[in-house]
Amino acid sequence: MTLKAEVTQHTASLRRYALVLTRDATAADDLVQETLVKAIDKADTWQPGTSLRPWLFRIMHNTHISDLRRTKTRSDAAPDLPEPVVPDHQHTQLELKQVLEALDQLPEAQRKPIILIALREMSYAEAARALDVPLGTFMSRLGRGREALRQIVSGISKGKLSVLKRKGNI
């Protein structure tokens, strides 16, 4: 595979990751562009012979952190964020919404490992490098994050169920 083809492939991955991080197509493309501009600027820090993917994701990770610090967007802008892209099945749509809501409640350190691994495009070691943490720390954050996500989603589901029950819809 040529370097150009490799960059194109990784950019598609960056776009997927950015879309989940930002929940907005325009914001995702902005993040990807910002990442690529920084990558061009830092091209000399890439070590030939090493995988390009973790290097690029690491730049995106740092860029996203800077953006969050600068604008404090996630919590402030959350009410204005558009609905996620709608899957066909309404139940799946509801589930996705719940999972995304639950993800928003997780600390950034747990949220990103979950998303990176869900994309299934990197090994644990590569994902840990992308987030600039030791593998053990990464695995711990991934595991704790997944469990926390499960508990939150379960709580959201139970809460919505009880509301429906109170309204007499069930």
Binding site: A12, R15, Q33, A43, I114, I117
Partner: peptide
């Protein structure tokens, strides 16, 4: 949960081609 997240991420593949990103890709390569 992974499947749901991945499903959402794949929607990025259907986004329109971004010419600025394409130009940056070439420059980076």
């Amino acid at each position: 949960h992974d499947n749901l997240i991945r499903q959402m991420a794949k929607d990025a593949d259907d986004l329109p081609v971004n010419m600025q990103i394409a130009a940056l890709e070439r420059e980076l390569a």
